[in-house]
Design a binder for these strands. Structure first.
Lengths: 187, 187, 187, 187
DNA sequence: TCGTAAGCGAGACGGTACGTCTGGTCTTTAC
DNA sequence: GTAAAGACCAGACGTACCGTCTCGCTTACGA
């Protein structure tokens, strides 16, 4: 069965995790703009060419980094309100991690006016969550997009403005507000 | 009395408005990163040095541009709920203007890890609105910041994600949601 | 007789000497390239426009400065050899003054590829001495130019290389060498 | 033995000669000040960054250019007088090459008040010739410096003043004059 | 005494060069 | 075939300087 066809040639060293870590660390330290690809490579201890062989651009690298950081949503339960709360807390926790908000904001900025990056960002980061949430919350795509905008937008804006993640009480306020909204939209 | 003391030296040519317009137009066309200072200067018909004499950096220019675009909030009326709605519609309309969201997002990204720009952004763009809203909405600073995060964050995220401004129905949904929130916080 | 026709308008303030002094001092301190016209103006305490009203360019200012510094050659005596020695010592003393060599070298460099400055340099600084020396040494123009090249070239090169003026013993060696040369050319 | 360990990475493209040629050509055409690094790069067909990777400044590039142009002195023979004549003709020929005098004068001017460039100019251009001449002419350092000042100073001054290299007859006069001088100093 | 001609200070302005930095590609050798 | 090292290209950034310009003010002379 599984013929175990390993591709020929020298196998890739498994340094993706280190690259991601170095990327976020560098962005956390210097911000997106000043986080040079050279610097990230140096921090990881690999060559810049290796990075560009794996990801086609700085934006794509950071996007992959974010995809890796966020990972899958917590599994849906029975209670939509609880699922929503869980999803929001999930997002808040991720965005609070050092460098994530800056990376997000940076890749966002670059995506405007760079269609290729925009495509990558869409397919790899946004679409998966959108699809899952449409299913789990049982809402129309329009509604789900509204929720995502409010949650992610608010959390990012807070991080960007203050440099600090949103305090828990405010996250809870956000949850309550959106749960109330959710009620209004369910049949 | 009022000696009308004009400062000595050649008076500045009044091209600020043209510069702002060219800045937003260029950002709208190419995105923040690709909107070169040289290009903006060329579009305005002035020298790059003139821009750098007036604004210390690209980020500062764009910030000034945003300050100019947003201008003062609509005057407060008697009804807090209506004031809130007016403020949100005000923000939505401004952010929908071509180039504004990209400029916002770009200057935001640059401000992380650039303390000088952060200072400019804070004092010239954020503080004024914060102060006015604390007064007009009669809320604590914490609450006002929450409102700002939700409104601006949501609107920017929508523009960034889709490239299109938030449709009116969604803006109205945002207004309703936040008005309900406002009620809950008033005495 | 001399109707003393003063030109109309406000007479020029007599700051030429101060400007020259500040020019040489600044060049002495920073070198020709870094000696900004702004700086010279500031050091003199006058406005840059005042300088440009009197001299058409930085090079012209420095040339005027040199003309002022060198002044007329010592009067010719009976003995050509002594006249030559006096002229060389005259040149050596002037070039040793702080800033003069740097000014000379700088204006020289700028004159290459700037025909206007070259014209100024020629007519105001070189021609007068050339004419006087042709007369007083009784040599052909070609010979006089050779002498000037040797004397001024040597003294400038020494200052430029070491930053120190040529020591007296070397100046005397130069004199002896050229006096011997002079003998060989006289009828 | 010598394992011929080539340094890792892409080897430098061999364009130094083209860069030097373009540098001198540009300086010849426009003078030192107007000879832009951008222009030189464009004339060579390489990027400006490549130039700045190899030479730290415009002055350093021009100095390297001169070092390359002058090259080693003609080998010393048995006869000091002939060696001196050869060295002078060597210098005269080099300085007569298009652009060389302007380059020399320019880098000279810039070196005053720019310690880093002065250091480069000293160690790379002046010291080598000084050492060789001390040996080959058998004179003290002081005497050699005097000779260098006279020869180089005179030749440069002529080029700077007239824009034309010194005619052969004048070079020969210079040689005769200095040979006589040389005799007077030998034991 | 008043107008007019010019000098002056302060500083904005256009143009242009410098030297630095970055994203992304290409070349060479080693594994 | 993948990795490392680093040269290379294109081009933006921000600074500095030159020489010009604008404008309000001051100093002189002449009518």
């Amino acid at each position: 069965m599984a013929p175990s066809t390993r591709p020929p040639g020298r196998p890739r060293s498994s340094v993706d995790a280190e690259v991601f870590a170095a990327t976020l660390a560098t962005i956390h330290e210097l911000g997106y703009t000043r986080a040079t690809v050279d610097r990230i490579a140096a921090a990881t201890g690999i060559a810049k060419t290796t990075i560009y062989r794996r990801w086609p651009s700085k934006g794509a690298l950071v996007t992959a980094c974010l995809v890796d950081t966020f990972g899958p949503l917590p599994p849906a339960g029975r209670d939509r309100a609880q699922d929503l709360a869980a999803a929001i807390r999930f997002g808040a926790r991720r965005i609070a991690e050092p460098g994530v908000a800056a990376a997000f904001s940076g890749v966002f900025t670059d995506a405007i006016g760079d269609p290729e990056l925009r495509e990558i960002l869409s397919t790899q980061l946004q679409d998966p969550y959108r699809k899952v949430l449409i299913e789990s919350l049982g809402l129309s795509e329009q509604r789900v997009l509204f929720f995502i905008d409010v949650v992610i937008g608010t959390l990012l804006h807070r991080m960007g403005m203050t440099g600090e993640p949103m305090v828990e009480s405010d996250v809870e306020a956000l949850i309550v507000m959106l749960q109330r909204e959710l009620e209004g939209w369910l049949p």
